[in-house]
């Protein structure tokens, strides 16, 4: 997914690590040498509520920092999908956790339903759902390179011992989820 200006919106509920995912994704884009602006938005709640972070990737300097209709949308929760699911550009890639959207016939084209949370739980920690999601996004969209994303994840957990290994595994698992079925 390569556009002159790519609008990315990552969403979920407070506590799912969406803000951190946004910072990691934006760092990866910076490592790729692109112009990037990342803007988090959240409600007054310390936990829960629908939260989102918007990242604009561009080849030129970015004036408007927000995303109107997203080219790439991640929804980790039902609330987030209800709130942001329709604010997408034509041809958008929409990646949702399987628990966020029931499997029905009328899902929009371009929607990919993945077991992101379940994969994180299988790794022993649901808190790495955000990194699993980043891996899947990277593989499905190619909006950032795998090497930059790997470096950005490592930077985010620098000095955090065991978490390094866990997050590396989460990223790899996410990339496998996003890989085209053989």
């Amino acid at each position: 997914m390569r556009k002159d200006r790519l609008g990315v919106r990552l969403s979920g509920r407070g506590g799912q690590g969406v803000m951190l995912a946004g910072a990691i994704f934006a760092t990866a884009a910076m490592y790729d040498g692109r112009h990037v602006v990342e803007t988090p938005t959240y409600g007054p709640e310390a936990r829960l509520g629908a939260t989102k972070v918007e990242i604009v990737l561009a080849d030129e300097e970015i004036a408007f920092p927000a995303v109107d209709r997203a080219d790439l949308l991640l929804c980790l929760s039902r609330d987030a999908y209800a709130k942001f699911g329709r604010a997408v550009a034509p041809g958008a890639l929409i990646i949702v956790d399987e628990t966020a959207v029931p499997l029905t016939a009328d899902l929009p084209a371009g929607l990919v339903r993945l077991p992101l949370r379940a994969t994180a739980r299988d790794l022993g920690a649901e808190m790495v759902t955000n990194v699993v999601a980043l891996g899947a996004i990277c593989r499905l969209s190619e909006a950032v390179t795998a090497s930059s994303l790997t470096a950005a994840v490592a930077e985010a957990v620098q000095g955090k011992g065991d978490l390094r290994e866990l997050n590396a595994r989460a990223l790899a698992a996410g990339m496998r989820l996003g890989a085209p079925a053989a």
């Binding site: 910072a23 934006a26 602006v37 990342e38 920092p65």
Partner: peptide, 9 residues
């Protein structure tokens, strides 16, 4: 709030 919370390189 936007300029305060946005991240830029």
């Amino acid at each position: 709030a936007v300029v305060a919370h946005m991240r830029e390189p």
